[in-house]
Design a protein around this nucleic acid. Structure first.
Lengths: 147, 147
DNA sequence: TTCCTTGCAAAGTGTTTGCATTTGT
DNA sequence: ACAAATGCAAACACTTTGCAAGGAA
């Protein structure tokens, strides 16, 4: 946990930016809720508990910065706002998928990458150099089944 | 072509709605550009050529109506606006995927459904009843390769 | 008439930007 | 002191909504 923060600090410094107190707070909130896919507003609300004077714009700017440094990336579950998640958006570093329950809105992560074969086929057939993919599966989750 | 329109007309009428002249125009524009994934604004601009007095709100309302009737559905390519495509969003009727070129922004459709095995596995492992999925593959398209 | 549709403008929602002030070094 | 970061409010982009006017049955 602490190491993640100092790792981010190093990466920012290497790019002539720094991990200010506000940015660290944003980062911590993201870390502590890394299972939740928070939106900017949600991050803002959590952050405000510890720094009530903090502005929403600062949260957006921190999120943008973290994205530039490939520390987080945005995902879109179709609810009209961006949500954030650790890991680079580019590259094949961190492939996982989301099961989205259309009843309760809950999101489950599937942490294996299940698409290698498929990617190889598509890549060959369409002469398309794949750098990333995004799979969202919609349906009814275990808890909501049978309700 | 004509049959698609009268089919839509029938479906709307069955649900106590009707295919007005404006709505038909929206539908036609969508049909004539079914390869393009138009946004609301793009539909609006095309529609205005034939009906200059038409308002943007009417386009949005027509698109919403068509979605309710599962005639079209919205997709999000992460550019901040919704784009529309024929076919139901629910159900396993019409599964295809999108190759999104990160260089030129071009979108290629992959019309086979390649995910059956994967769905079966996920469904079993997570007790998740799948109703739909969405796969976006990012990379460099054939034309942009080597530029 | 009655009900639905439409155009227009206003309101909403999520995000970004301009600018004066504050902070860190 | 200087550059970068921040809070605030205004601006933005896309979408939705309220309402009065228009049209079809």
């Amino acid at each position: 946990m602490k190491n993640v923060i100092s790792d981010v600090e190093d990466r920012l410094r290497a790019g002539d930016s720094k991990l200010t107190a506000r940015r660290e707070l944003v980062l911590k909130v993201l870390l502590e809720n890394s299972d939740k896919h928070l939106s900017a507003e949600e991050v803002y609300n959590l952050v405000k508990r510890r720094a009530p004077e903090m502005g929403l714009a600062t949260v957006y700017r921190a999120l943008e910065l973290f994205q530039e440094f490939d520390i987080i990336h945005a995902i879109d579950f179709g609810d009209g706002r961006k949500r954030y998640e650790f890991g680079s958006g580019k590259g094949k570093i961190h492939h996982h998928h989301h099961l989205i329950c259309t009843k309760c809105g809950g999101i489950t992560e599937v942490n294996e990458d299940l698409l290698e074969d498929l990617e190889n086929r598509v890549s060959r057939q369409h002469h398309f150099t794949i750098t990333d993919h995004q799979l969202k599966i919609f349906g009814i989750c275990r808890q909501c089944t049978g309700k």
